[in-house]
Structures are given as C-alpha cells and as structure tokens.
C-alpha cells in the first residue's frame, strides 16, 4: 500500500465567515499534513470565498481530506486536482538596490529574459514582479541573488481548474429547493 505522494491542489469554496480558515487548517494539522501554500480570496461568485491549498499527500489521503472539508457546515464544495488538471501560477516580488541597474548591466538582460515586470523604481530601490511557475520564479531568484536581493517574497499558488466546478448551479439548486 505504498501510494505515491504527489502535489495536489485543493480548492475549497466557502461562505465568507470568520473562523473558517481556522477550521480548515485544523483539519490538516490534525492529520499532520504540512501546507505547502495557501491562498484565499473572493471567488467568481459574489459572497463566496475560495481557498487554494497545495499539499503533498497521497491520492487516498486527498480523497479523505476532501470529505472532511465537505463536511464542514460552511464549506460549499471541495475538490482536489493534480498539477495536470489545473492551470496554476505563483507570483514573486523582488526589491533590489537601484544602483545595481546601472552598475550591473547584466541585470537588465536578466529582467528582459525572465519576462519580469518592473513595478516601481526610485532612487534607492526598484521592485520586480514575476508571475509563473515556481521554478521560473526560483531561477530568477537565483540569478538575482548573485547581485543581492533586499527583499523577496513569493505568493502561494493560485490555480484554476480545467474541469468545471458548477458551484453556481449548486447554490441555485439550494435556492430553488
């Protein structure tokens, strides 16, 4: 029963209520599952939130944990997907000394080649933003690290799924009951 551990993206549609994050994270914590990344935002439906959580677990764990989410009163619906079933991105921000732009001409090439975007520039620092897969952001970080990065931050994964999730239909069905 040595099932493969894979990266799963868990999407949870919920009511927008205080305390729900706590309930959701407790479900991972109780099963000793480490959260690789967690993002929460408004979803496509007014008043409905969406959690996108990345965890490395087995598929049978994923199935069971979805059942636990679904069982929470304010969870409308939960899903798990493999990487192939989603389109996903992360975003990284880099704060770098402005002098380097002029002292290290190489940096300009790095920026161009990486498709990173300059968010702001002032006398002391400039800020780069790069969206993409984790490895793209990581490789940019490695390249820039040589020159020194003042601050770096990377967001959690955001993902949309290839398959439809039919949350609106589900909510309509309730209203028409």
């Amino acid at each position: 029963m040595n099932e493969e551990i894979k990266s799963f993206t868990i999407s949870i549609y919920t009511e927008n209520n205080i305390g729900l994050l706590n309930r959701i994270s407790a479900i991972f914590q109780r099963r000793h599952i480490n959260i690789e990344s967690l993002t929460t935002s408004q979803s496509e439906i007014e008043g409905v939130n969406r959690f996108v959580i990345v965890v490395n677990i087995t598929e049978s764990q994923a199935k069971k944990i979805i059942g636990q989410f679904q069982k929470q009163i304010e969870v409308i619906r939960a899903y798990y997907h493999t990487e192939e079933q989603t389109i996903y991105q992360e975003s990284g921000m880099f704060k770098i000394k402005s002098d380097l732009l002029f002292d290290e001409p190489q940096i300009q090439n790095i920026i161009k080649e990486s498709n990173a975007r300059i968010v702001t520039v002032n006398k002391e620092f400039f800020v780069l933003e790069k969206s993409g897969r984790r490895n793209e952001i990581e490789s940019l970080r490695r390249d820039l690290n040589i020159f020194g990065i003042m601050q770096f931050v990377r967001s959690g994964r955001i993902a949309v799924t290839k398959e439809e999730m039919k949350i609106t239909e589900m909510l309509l069905a309730f209203n028409n009951q």
């Binding site: 205080i18 305390g19 706590n22 309930r23 407790a26 109780r30 009163i73 304010e74």
Partner: peptide, 14 residues
Amino acid sequence: IIGISTPVTKWNHQ
C-alpha cells in the same frame, strides 16, 4: 472559545 472549540464542534459561531 471559538478557537478552542472549533475542532470539536459540528459548528460554532460568535
């Protein structure tokens, strides 16, 4: 108590 009771309640609310 909301935080404390979360894992052991079906639902809780303040």
